[in-house]
């Protein structure tokens, strides 16, 4: 295979004795910085979730399961009733999963055709389309969420336009509803869906679709029965990239939602605000969120490994 085009692989750069000798010093800064300032803090957070709450918004180093008990179990107002399942926080988690799942589905609905369309453009114009999709990702999420809040307001540009066009006579009260949060999550993470699906479709061998067409399948049947199974890893990756950040989102529920749209991100944030907070409980909620995310990532890793075989 001498003279063949280099294939991008983890070994692409090959092995070089000089860099092999310098490996430790070269990697030491990364290990130190991420190890000390991220890995260690995450482990410490797990420890914190088993500590006792102090009233001024700190902790005492007494180990207890109180935080998890508070999350899952209720014993009535005075703590003397038989233990029952506490639904308050499970409901918040369930709402977050549902909202993030719905946002993921919406992103897929819009993102797949977009990715397909871009991947089937002439090669020269693809980067321009992709660039247009990527720019909003790099724009401050806070600014994007504020923009959405601005146009969704009762007296905002969207209602003005709809009333002006005669579509509606009363302004739609979207802000502070689940719908607004939903739109916010969809809008925040849409680029994440397009990019991995694009990468999968670009590698797709269109001869497969042609074969399906020759055998009498119409284009939609070919899409669902031939294309989708082949590009599925890209679709799964896109769904994960949208679902995971949407699950822990803070800005969309905080700026677009109201009291009834409380999500995990807001619940965690609340535990670290002022003296009303509860650090061990906040840590426990974070640990539960992280566990949920890890499960999702593991399912994806297994699916990817199976697809690779």
């Amino acid at each position: 295979m001498a003279g063949a085009a280099p294939t991008p692989s983890p070994e692409a750069g090959g092995s070089d004795a000089t860099y092999a000798r310098l490996r430790r010093p070269l990697l030491a800064p990364t290990w130190t910085v991420i190890g000390v300032f991220l890995l260690l803090p995450v482990l410490l957070m797990v420890v914190y979730s088993f500590l006792t709450k102090e009233f001024r918004g700190g902790v005492e180093w007494d180990f207890t399961l109180a935080a998890y008990d508070q999350f899952f179990v209720t014993r009535g107002l005075f703590g003397d009733e038989p233990a029952q399942i506490e639904w308050t926080y499970i409901t918040i988690f369930w709402r977050s999963i549902w909202q993030a799942g719905l946002a993921t589905f919406l992103c897929l609905l819009i993102g797949f055709p977009t990715a397909w369309f871009i991947a089937t453009r002439p090669e020269a114009s693809r980067p321009i389309w992709l660039f247009l999709i990527t720019i909003p990702y790099w724009v401050n999420l806070l600014i994007r969420t504020v923009s959405l809040r601005f146009i969704l307001r009762d007296q905002g540009p969207m209602n003005d336009a709809l009333i002006g066009l005669g579509v509606i006579s009363q302004p739609l009260e979207i802000l502070n509803t689940n719908l607004a949060v939903q739109l916010g999550l969809f809008y925040s993470y849409l680029p994440f869906m397009v990019l991995p699906i694009y990468a999968a479709v670009e590698r797709y061998n269109f001869a497969l679709s042609e074969a399906a067409a020759d055998l009498g399948a119409n284009r939609w049947r070919a899409l669902f029965e031939v294309v989708l199974p082949v590009v599925r890893p890209g679709i799964v990756a896109g769904c994960i990239l949208v679902f995971v950040p949407a699950l822990g989102a803070f800005l969309a529920p905080d700026l677009l939602g109201g009291a009834k749209t409380f999500m995990i991100g807001s619940l965690i944030d609340e535990q670290f605000r002022g003296s009303q907070g509860n650090w061990p409980f906040g840590a426990a909620v974070s640990v539960i969120l992280m566990t949920l995310v890890l499960i999702v990532l593991m399912i994806q890793a297994r699916a990817a490994a199976r697809a690779g075989q």
Binding site: L38, P41, M45, V244, P245, G248, I268, G282, A283, L289
Partner: peptide
């Protein structure tokens, strides 16, 4: 790691 979890862990640390 979700951003909010990084935030919590870093503050605690």
């Amino acid at each position: 790691v979700p951003e909010i979890v990084i935030a919590v862990a870093t503050l605690i640390f």
